[in-house]
């Protein structure tokens, strides 16, 4: 991201990209007749902040050893992930039309052996954080200046492997690691707090040795400074981003049924009318 832009300009730039990603992801789910649109919409602003402001990468050289790494631990939200990666230049935007089509590189869950920009395969929950921790350890051993970002769902935090990795990261003071929780409070069937409660979530991360911040996960003015890759740190950072499942589409917002709901034509047209700013 060019440094010469003002903070407001940076926000406007990310917001415009986020809008494009939301619209594109929603269309992908509509056309493929499957997907996870609720989580796509809640994660979009976080993805856009990372790829269109915060992270250092070169889509023409996706395996550059010095790149910042992003791991989508909530691997089911590929509508948002693929739209973001295409907008970032990792593969042609036209390819998004092949989402979940036979032999497409755009599987329902990401495949790093096929698609540039994907760092590791996810889909089963609880996998991304240990891999991010391993990457952060590699960076620590090499005294490298790349940063590692990992996005988890909130329901995903019920997986034990997350906390194994959280313990390792806290113990090793992995200051190059930032984890963002997409805290939309809904898992596929119900509220997280009705299923197996996560609160007090910030205290949990603190107890594992992490530096914790909380913010509105759709407020770019709050997100960007928390994600700042150059700010000095002593510990891994967990950002609990309070989000809305289905954000931006009125009939989807905060509805568990849209975890993997598929819009009909009228709903698609309504969403396209609503997703304009």
């Amino acid at each position: 991201m060019p440094d010469e832009l003002s903070f407001d300009d940076r926000i406007a730039h990310v917001r415009a990209r986020a809008l494009w990603v939301r619209r594109r992801a929603f269309r992908m789910v509509y056309e493929a007749r499957q997907g996870h649109p609720g989580g796509d919409m809640s994660a979009t602003d976080i993805l856009a902040a990372l790829y269109f402001d915060v992270m250092r990468y070169d889509p023409a050289n996706p395996r550059d050893p010095g790149r910042d790494r992003f791991i989508m631990s909530k691997g089911h939200c590929t509508g948002a992930l693929y739209s973001t990666l295409a907008a970032a230049g990792f593969f042609p935007e036209e390819e998004l039309c092949s989402y979940m089509q036979p032999l497409s590189r755009l599987n329902g869950h990401p495949n790093c052996t096929k698609l540039p920009g994907v760092e590791t395969n996810t889909g089963p929950l609880g996998h991304g954080v240990p891999v991010a921790v391993g990457l952060a350890i590699a960076g620590q051993i090499d005294k490298a200046d790349y940063r590692v970002f990992v996005l988890t769902g909130d329901g995903e935090l019920q997986e034990g492997s997350i906390w194994e990795a959280a313990m390792t990261a806290g113990h090793r003071k992995l200051a190059n690691l930032t984890l963002i929780v997409d805290r939309n409070t809904l898992q596929q069937g119900a509220r997280t707090e009705e299923t197996v409660g996560l609160e007090p979530l910030a205290d949990k991360w603190r107890a594992f040795g992490w530096d914790v911040a909380e913010c509105d996960g759709h407020d770019l003015a709050a997100l960007l400074p928390l994600l700042d890759r150059s700010a000095p740190r002593e510990r891994p950072r967990a950002i609990i981003a309070r989000t809305v499942k289905g954000k931006g589409v009125s009939f989807m917002e905060d509805q568990a049924s849209w975890h993997h709901g598929v819009p009909n034509t009228a709903q698609f047209e309504q969403a396209m009318r609503e997703l304009v700013a």
């Binding site: 050893p65 790494r69 954080v129 240990p130 891999v131 991010a132 391993g134 990457l135 952060a136 590699a138």
Partner: peptide
């Protein structure tokens, strides 16, 4: 579980 995932991350980091 963490051990194997950490291994994958280390490999991604060039180890």
């Amino acid at each position: 579980q963490n051990m194997v995932g950490v291994g994958a991350g280390l490999a991604n980091g060039g180890k």
